[in-house]
């Protein structure tokens, strides 16, 4: 079941410097929301505070509210939260285990008893990986190509049926063909899960996202439907950024 993510007056600071400043917007259930902005503007920090991975960083303070499916994230059990909100990272980071073990890692960690082979198949199918890997399930995941590894990471986070999946520049390490395949799998997930994609590739945002938020220097400049933003943005900063006047 996809869930709505609502961010209300969110501020994040590292060592006293504000990285995200009073950001509020909503990511609708079952849709793809892209967060764009120049590098170092706080996109990744914002994303990591949704599943509270930001807490791993020392001296990080999060203020405000993040609601996933009406529940305040900051008051939830972190493990239960992360089972609801999966994440795919910038660099593909499969575990040094077999492909099958990688996909089933979350299931086994949560000690859920279900039909494992079913889950492996359906998750790999959604990540557009099943045809390639059907007969290689017991091989080490480290032998895969970078693009396959990244899609395996997508499949891995799909296996525990999350409500939201966060993607932190998922295509930045990939070549164009792998990027296309990844976008294909994003399309196939749409509707089953709420997707939040951080990217600095505007074309990619245009291709996959239903909604787009533009963040600059830790502040939310504009958030709207993708077509509206790209065709006719409300704010001049957005237009300048999209036209490449600064980055």
């Amino acid at each position: 079941m996809p869930a709505t993510v609502e961010i209300k007056h969110l501020s994040v600071s590292y060592n006293g410097t504000n990285v995200v400043k009073d950001v509020s917007f909503e990511m609708p259930a079952g849709k793809v929301t892209a967060i764009i902005g120049p590098s170092g503007c706080g996109k990744t920090t914002l994303l990591r505070s949704i599943n509270r991975l930001s807490e791993l960083t020392k001296n990080c303070r999060v203020q405000g509210e993040i609601m996933v499916d009406g529940e305040n994230v900051l008051k939830m059990d972190t493990v239960l939260l992360r089972r609801k909100v999966g994440m795919v990272f910038q660099q593909p980071n499969p575990f040094p285990k077999s492909i099958k073990e990688n996909v089933l890692y979350g299931i086994k960690a949560a000690k859920i008893k279900t039909d494992h082979s079913d889950i492996v198949k359906s998750s790999l199918q959604k990540a557009v990986l099943w045809e390639e890997l059907e007969h290689r399930l017991n091989e080490s995941a480290l032998n895969l190509s970078i693009g396959q590894q990244q899609r395996l990471c997508v499949a891995r986070s799909l296996a525990i049926t999350p409500e939201v999946i966060l993607m932190d520049e998922p295509a930045s390490a990939l070549d164009p063909v792998s990027t296309l395949k990844l976008e294909e799998s994003i399309q196939s997930m749409k509707g089953d899960v709420t997707l939040v994609i951080v990217t600095h590739n505007m074309q990619q945002a245009k291709r996959v996202a239903d909604y787009t938020a533009f963040i600059y220097r830790g502040e939310l400049i504009e958030c709207n439907e993708t077509e509206k933003i790209f065709a006719n943005p409300d704010r001049s900063e957005t237009r300048d950024y999209l036209e490449g006047k600064f980055s």
């Binding site: 599943n51 991975l53 791993l56 493990v79 994440m87 575990f95 040094p96 960690a109």
Partner: peptide, 27 residues
């Protein structure tokens, strides 16, 4: 142990203890 593996494990909803036992110590 690379932080990315630890983060991946935590992001998949594995607890700290499970991560230590299955990712960190083997590595």
């Amino acid at each position: 142990v690379p932080a990315r593996l630890k983060e991946a494990s935590l992001a998949l909803g594995a607890g700290k203890w499970h991560t230590i036992g299955h990712i960190i110590l083997p590595h």
